[in-house]
Design a protein around this nucleic acid. Structure first.
Ligand SMILES: [Mn+2]
Ligand SMILES: [Mn+2]
Ligand SMILES: [Zn+2]
Ligand SMILES: [Zn+2]
Lengths: 137, 137
DNA sequence: TTATAAATTTGTAATGATTGCAAATATATA
DNA sequence: TATATATTTGCAATCATTACAAATTTATAA
């Protein structure tokens, strides 16, 4: 279960990121969200409070966050890139009816029981399912 | 381990797809390939033998194959959609150095041991890793 | 404080993959 | 053979993402 940093300013500083207003709001929004938002969603959500916000800034900031390892990309559909402040190992379920993306827990054993990858260095591990969520049936 | 259909013409027919020259060549190329090619790769590979081939046809054909369930999409990077004639449950490893995508076996237990998804209907299951392959170190 | 340099944000143009669409071609049916 | 149907093709349109240079903000030095 993801524990959102209580102090986002310090969290960004500790990650080596200067906490500008834009960066702070984007990180806060993402860490509070459970919906794995897209750039579009983030931009639309923050535009009212930061009227000068540029979509380019959202792109730049998310890339910066990635490079510093404090967020991860969730690639399920090829046409929608989603973002997640929870970088711990967990799975995603995308409902093909309502489009929502849910989290679910995964044990690390999953990765360990894999054969055929001797001499391969694993740096990332992604697991996702598709189907119909309980709300949609 | 994926077993390529010995007779692609009959395989397409059995799937309810009329085996035109373009469809046949595209399916054959994909089923022979181990590299999980992109549209671009498929188009470039087949252009010499089918000089009139259109990239739109490659897109249309791959979508048709998907709809008939004989191929699957492999989404690892958000900017490169890859295709796979092996629709059985297996994992993918993408080397971030050479860009190659490898297959590896996965037992179905993986999916079964997942908690937190009661009342969810699962229709697709995807698992992929990133890292450095043995060739690249 | 004021001037200057560095970092960040912004708007717009460019890129590139994918899709829409209507014309051209090929195949099936009468 | 003539006609209808299916398939392919080329090109324009779309849409997410990136490149880039100007504008703005923040940090540093005089
Ligand atoms: Mn998540
Ligand atoms: Mn594969
Ligand atoms: Zn749903
Ligand atoms: Zn490699």
């Amino acid at each position: 279960m993801f524990k959102r940093p209580e102090n986002a300013v310090n969290f960004l500083k500790d990650a080596g990121i200067k906490p500008s207003v834009q960066r702070l709001r984007i990180y806060e929004f993402l860490s509070k969200s459970i919906e794995h938002p897209t750039v579009e969603t983030i931009f639309n959500a923050l535009s009212p409070e930061i009227p000068t916000l540029s979509k380019t800034t959202v792109y730049n900031t998310l890339k910066l966050f990635q490079e510093h390892g404090i967020i991860m990309v969730v690639n399920i559909e090829d046409n929608e890139t989603r973002y997640d402040a929870d970088t711990s190992f967990h799975g995603h379920f995308k409902c093909t009816k309502c489009g929502r993306v849910y989290d679910f827990p995964l044990s690390l054993e999953h990765t360990n029981t894999i054969g055929g990858l001797e001499n391969y260095t694993i740096t990332e591990s992604h697991y996702y399912l598709k189907g119909i969520c309980s709300n949609c049936k």
